[in-house]
Each structure stands twice: as structure tokens, then as C-alpha cells.
């Protein structure tokens, strides 16, 4: 049995330790907000926070996540939506939406580490793929979220 702490809740899972965290979240726990896009840490659709760090869960064996604090898109909001989620709505970011859980999680982690990112910081840190091309709006939304948080 493996114990996982996801969104402040404890789950006991009877699965192979090499199972990627992505599939433990989606198929064992039923948290399907975290998406499968490539399986090789290229696209970022599967991004979650592991001890606060943006992590591509398709390449993280679940055994290595045990005992750490995992946050998924479902656990990002508190009583109100996270500033990044609010900024995403204000800037009309999502199109098909499939990459957006990962984008939001990556942006939230970036802002936690760097509350006022420059365009160059965003270029370097936000490397998730969006086939719908929402990048210009993601950029605007990150700046908006930074401004909201500093207010």
C-alpha cells in the first residue's frame, strides 16, 4: 500500500510503485482534471504541484510522490478561485481547454516563486504546449494575476 496526500486528503493505493503519478491521480483516485498529453514530459498537460513545485506527473513514479504534498487543479482554489484562475477567466484564455489545467498549475507555481515575472521569465518557465495557441492570452493572464496579487 502506498499513501498519497493529494489536495490535503490521504489516499491509500494498492498499485505498482512505478505507476506514474498521472495515472494514479486519474484512474485510481478519479481526479481527471490532470491530463494526459504526451507521456514523456514534453507537453505539461499533466502538471501538478509536488511540495509546491510544478511537476510533470506523467514521469514521476507514484512511489516518489508518496509522503509529499500533492496539489492538483481540483485543489488549487481555496474559498475563492486562485488568482491565476480568476485572471484566466478575465483574459478569456481557454479554447478547447485540454491543456489549461497544466497551464494554470504551471503559472501558479511560477507566481509563487516569482511574484512579478517578466516576459522573459514567462518564456523560460511556461513551456507547456497549447495546440489551440492560447499563449498570448496566457502571458497576459499571468501579468494580470501578478498585478492582482500585488494589490
Amino acid at each position: 500500500m502506498l499513501a498519497l496526500m493529494v489536495n490535503n486528503r490521504r489516499y491509500e493505493l494498492d498499485i505498482e510503485p512505478e505507476t506514474p503519478l498521472l495515472w494514479a491521480l486519474r484512474d485510481e483516485i478519479g481526479l481527471t482534471g490532470t491530463k494526459f498529453g504526451c507521456g514523456i514530459a514534453q507537453c505539461g498537460a499533466c502538471t501538478v504541484h509536488v511540495d509546491g513545485v510544478a511537476t510533470r506527473s506523467c514521469q514521476l513514479p507514484v512511489a516518489e510522490a508518496a509522503g509529499k504534498k500533492i496539489t492538483t487543479i481540483e485543489g488549487l482554489a481555496g474559498d475563492t478561485l486562485h488568482a491565476v484562475q480568476q485572471a484566466w477567466i478575465a483574459e478569456d484564455v481557454p479554447q478547447c481547454g485540454y491543456c489549461q489545467s497544466g497551464q494554470v498549475m504551471a503559472a501558479a507555481a511560477l507566481l509563487a516563486a516569482n511574484p512579478k515575472p517578466t516576459d522573459a521569465d514567462i518564456d523560460a518557465e511556461i513551456t507547456n504546449i497549447c495546440r489551440c495557441g492560447t499563449y498570448p492570452r496566457i502571458r497576459a493572464a499571468i501579468h494580470r494575476a501578478a498585478a492582482m496579487a500585488s494589490r
Binding site: G33, T34, V93, P94
Partner: peptide, 27 residues
Amino acid sequence: TARLDTPVKVTGEAKFGIDTRVPDMVY
């Protein structure tokens, strides 16, 4: 006009085909 599908697409609630779960389902 703000898109009606935006809120569920920033919270992870939007259901795509790949998120389907039905009883006794295998993969």
C-alpha cells in the same frame, strides 16, 4: 461575450472524452 465554457476549463471540471468513467469499465 465571455465564453460560457471558460469557468469549468480553469477548474479542471470540464469533462473531455478521456475523462469518462463508467462502472465496471476496463481500459
